[in-house]
Design a protein around this nucleic acid. Sequence first.
DNA 1: ACATTAAGTGATT
DNA 2: AATCACTTAATGT
Length: 217
Amino acid sequence: MAKITKTIEAKFSKYFSHIFEKTLFEEIIDIGIYSSLNKDEYLIDIGDKLTYIPLILKGAIKIMREDEKGNEILLYFLERGDTCAISFVNCINVKKSLFRGVTERHTEFILIPVNKIEEWLVNYKSWREFIIDSYHSRLIELAKTIESLTFLKLDERLVQYLEAKVKIMHSKSLNISHQEIATDLHTSRVVISRLLKALEKMHKIELGRENIRVTNL
DNA sequence: ACATTAAGTGATT
DNA sequence: AATCACTTAATGT
């Protein structure tokens, strides 16, 4: 956790300056706290109290949902330029988080304290638009997830998953275990192993230990 | 050298 | 598509 330096401001400016009006931009630089997390760290867990909202500068976050029995399912990914809009409403009401956010890779972000979120909603048009926009994108992501859960077979979901992963990691070489994919898609490792083998036979991917190389999906 | 963890596979439901 | 049971291979200590 640190104050925002000139270098970080430049990074932030690159992805967010066209979104926010100048006075708001300056206020974010003044008030925001810069922070980062390594791969596989929790940004937020289910039940955590929300005190900050992250504006993502770099990296990617996986948003998961878990039921009472511990069944996990991947909802969507967040990346650079995104924020976790779902958490805004939670923030304002000081409710606990419904989701879990885990970093997919080293991730940098600027934290905005809860009290400012509400204040800016009143004072800045660009902030209102940003929040609504972000909320809208998350809703679309969720709709897509429901769609694939309902209509797609597991092999098609796996292909979608790999595509999303490649996009988010900015790499065709994914360092991920079959077990982790199985957990994300809420199925068993054996099934994933078999489907991956099938994709390999079709020359769409290449398999290694904890590595999948996507060649031509 | 031994234990642990990831991945491959046939058979069964 | 899930589970079991077992094997093989890679990696850590």
